[in-house]
């Protein structure tokens, strides 16, 4: 993909999701450019996870659209993709890192098998090469090669998150979705994981949407920030700008209550 192409990678327009009477997410529009990291912040119940589900086609919107710039340069409306195309996109050009590693990993399959799964799904049929690739990515996420045949249920929380990242990275995705990737981890483990993610973003020009309630995570990783409340985007802008000089009272409250803590 040419860097000169300044079309956004993903364009969401008017995304809305109703759960019966309840509004999950209302009229959200958002662009994500190649190599750009966008943090979606807000309290629990603010609609940020719903938005992530809608952007990543895991949820069907009640209204609105999401367009994506495919690798061949064609812009496609994601809702119009066939199930086969959608699955292919999800496991090649996209990644998804869950807060709960059990949703993103096969706990009964070895680390190597987990990392190799995407490769096999896209047709790799050489055991030696799949394994070599898995080893390469274990190195990159700082998991010892000697653990390649161990199952993730023997891994620590931080290792599981890193394994999730390796599993996603083997197909060199251009966009990765993360749902509270550091949630529930010790502070020191968090710091290491954040460093790793930051490195990947700059090394591979990854675009990312990170949902987090932790403004420190947002400050460290993201270029842009989207603040949500009651299912709506109430403020958006460059991360440093928003966090240093929040305009909305709610954002001010968030920043005051969390960053100073």
């Amino acid at each position: 993909m040419s860097a000169l192409d300044d079309r956004p990678l993903l364009v969401a327009e008017g995304l809305t999701k109703h759960y019966g009477q309840h509004i999950g997410c209302a009229d959200v529009s958002l662009d994500i450019h190649e190599g750009e990291v966008v943090a979606v912040v807000g309290e629990s119940g603010s609609g940020k996870s719903t938005l992530l589900g809608l952007l990543s086609t895991q949820l069907l919107p009640s209204a609105g659209s999401v367009r994506y710039l495919m690798r061949d340069g064609e812009e496609r409306e994601l809702l119009s993709l066939s199930e086969a195309e959608r699955r292919f996109l999800l496991r090649t050009d996209w990644g998804f890192v869950h807060q709960d590693a059990r949703l993103g990993l096969r706990m009964g399959v070895s680390a190597g098998g987990n990392v190799g799964e995407r490769l096999m799904a896209v047709g790799w049929r050489h055991y030696g090469r799949i394994r070599a690739e898995a080893e390469h990515w274990l190195d990159r996420v700082e998991i010892a090669r000697s653990r390649i045949d161990d199952r993730p249920d023997t891994f620590s929380g931080g290792m599981r998150q890193r394994l999730q990242i390796a599993k996603n990275m083997v197909t060199r995705p251009r966009l990765i979705f993360m749902d509270e990737p550091t949630g529930g981890l010790d502070v020191s483990v968090q710091a290491r994981l954040l460093d790793l993610i930051r490195g990947f973003v700059s090394d591979y020009g990854l675009a990312a949407v990170i949902v987090t309630h932790d403004l420190a995570v947002a400050r460290l990783l993201s270029h842009r920030i989207v603040v949500m409340r009651h299912g709506r985007v109430i403020e958006t802008g460059l991360t440093d700008q928003v966090l240093d000089d929040p305009r909305e009272p709610y954002t001010q409250l968030l920043v005051a209550s969390i960053l100073q803590a």
């Binding site: 699955r87 496991r91 098998g113 190799g116 799964e117 995407r118 096999m120 799904a121 896209v122």
Partner: peptide, 11 residues
Amino acid sequence: DYGLMHVKLYE
């Protein structure tokens, strides 16, 4: 979508 079967053989 048969990647899973190869995962089993890989294991």
